[in-house]
């Protein structure tokens, strides 16, 4: 499982004096479960974008198990992300018109010419694991909690070493949010994946082994809880 090493990371946006993100050094062991918190605009999303290779770090190095994302091209980062990162987002990004299982399979369908029976069986297993009884149900007819659980299943299909969730519970009611949080923690534990969750939800941060508090793009010293 990949561990993370950040050195001299600095992200600036045009027109802003202060860097949006400045992390001199950060190391995470493989399999760590980490929360990223902080007020809005503190750089949480920017950090997630950099960690998942969605955006390129122009200054500094972001290495997962020796792979420096800042040195990869956009296409290479896409391929790396497809192979190593499972993403869960606040707004689910499920595609209406497709069933639950088709949504889980969609990223693999779009990047492979043919899907093996194994992948399909894994999709069915994951859907059962997250508690979706009918994999053929069109996603637009699911409840929001169910939708996020389908999204969790989708994130795990390629057996990623890194699971990244951006406010996964923010748009859910307390009960559904708790169910999704349980799933993320359990599944990351089962697969040994490194779990990084950006969240405001104290019930969620309280359950993670480490909390990174961002403020103005910098890690708040001492706010880290081991």
């Amino acid at each position: 499982m990949p561990g993370l090493a950040i050195r001299d990371l600095e992200v600036r946006f045009p027109g802003l004096e202060q860097p949006a993100l400045a992390i001199p050094a950060l190391d995470l062991p493989a399999g760590a479960h980490v929360a990223v918190t902080g007020p809005s605009g503190c750089g949480k999303t920017t950090l997630l974008n950099i960690l998942t290779g969605l955006e390129r770090a122009r200054h500094g190095a972001v290495s997962w198990q020796g792979t420096d994302l800042s040195a990869l091209s956009e296409g290479a980062r896409d391929r790396w992300r497809a192979a190593h990162v499972g993403l869960v987002m606040q707004e689910f990004h499920l595609f209406p018109g497709l069933s639950a299982v088709e949504n889980v399979l969609l990223p693999q369908r779009l990047s492979h010419l043919r899907l093996g029976g194994e992948t399909k069986a894994e999709a069915a297993r994951l859907l059962a694991r997250v508690g979706i009884g009918n994999p053929r149900q069109p996603v637009e007819t699911l409840s929001r909690g169910q939708m996020q659980r389908v999204a969790v299943a989708r994130a795990l299909l390629a057996r990623p070493g890194i699971l990244v969730a951006d406010e996964p519970t923010a748009s859910l009611d307390a009960e559904a949010g708790a169910a999704v949080a349980d799933l993320l923690l359990e599944l990351a534990g089962e697969t040994g994946a490194t779990l990084i969750i950006a969240t405001h939800d104290p019930r969620l941060t309280g359950r993670l082994e480490r909390v990174l508090r961002l403020d103005g793009g910098r890690l708040a010293p001492g706010a880290e809880r081991a």
């Binding site: 296409g75 992300r81 497809a82 993403l87 595609f95 779009l110 990047s111």
Partner: peptide
């Protein structure tokens, strides 16, 4: 564009997005 971005974020190659 957010939906299209999501496709790529989940691992769809750029060429596939173009082709779609």
């Amino acid at each position: 564009r957010r939906q299209i971005g999501a496709l790529r974020a989940f691992g769809a190659p750029r060429l596939v997005v173009f082709a779609i």
